[in-house]
Amino acid sequence: MISRVFRATLFALYQLCIVIGIAAMPLAMAARQAGVTIPIHRMLETVEAVYETTQPTDA
C-alpha cells in the first residue's frame, strides 16, 4: 500500500515538473538568449529516473 502511495506521489511530482518546464519555457528561451541556461531538464530527468525505478517489473 505504501509503495502505491509513493508511486502515485512520484507520478504527481513528475507531472508537476513537466508543467513547470512547459510554463518556464519562455523564461528559459529568454535566458538562453542572454547566455544563461536553466537546469530544468536535470530536475525532470532525476524525477523521471526515480519514478521509473519504482515501477513494478512484469515477470
Rank of each mutant, 00 (worst) to 15 (best):
Y51V: 04
A23E: 11
Y51S: 10
P56F: 14
F11D: 13
A12H: 01
Y51W: 12
I22V: 15
Q55H: 12
L13P: 00
A23K: 04
P39I: 06
P56Q: 13
Q33W: 08
A31L: 14
P26K: 12
I22R: 12
T9E: 11
A31Y: 01
A23C: 12
P26D: 10
H41N: 10
R42V: 11
Q33S: 07
F11V: 15
L13F: 08
L16G: 02
T37M: 06
L10E: 03
R7H: 06
L27T: 10
L44Y: 10
I18Y: 05
V47R: 02
R32A: 13
P39S: 05
A34F: 04
P56W: 13
A8K: 09
A28V: 02
T54K: 03
Y14H: 14
A12K: 06
V47E: 03
A30V: 01
R32K: 08
P56K: 12
T46G: 12
A49P: 00
I18F: 07
A28N: 11
I38Q: 03
V36W: 04
C17I: 01
G35N: 05
T46C: 09
V50T: 10
T9Q: 08
E45A: 14
L27R: 06
M43V: 13
T9V: 10
L10M: 15
I40E: 03
E45L: 12
L13Y: 05
L16A: 15
A31I: 00
G21F: 11
H41S: 13
V47Y: 04
V19E: 13
A30D: 07
A24Y: 08
P39H: 05
I40Y: 12
V19Y: 10
Q55N: 13
C17E: 15
L16D: 06
V50S: 02
M43D: 05
A34K: 07
I18D: 04
L27D: 02
Q55P: 00
A23F: 13
Y51K: 04
I40M: 15
R32L: 09
I22T: 11
A12M: 05
A34Q: 09
A31G: 01
R32N: 09
P39C: 06
E52N: 11
A30Y: 02
Y51Q: 04
A31M: 12
I20V: 14
L44G: 02
V47P: 03
I22K: 11
P39M: 06
T37K: 01
A49M: 02
A49H: 03
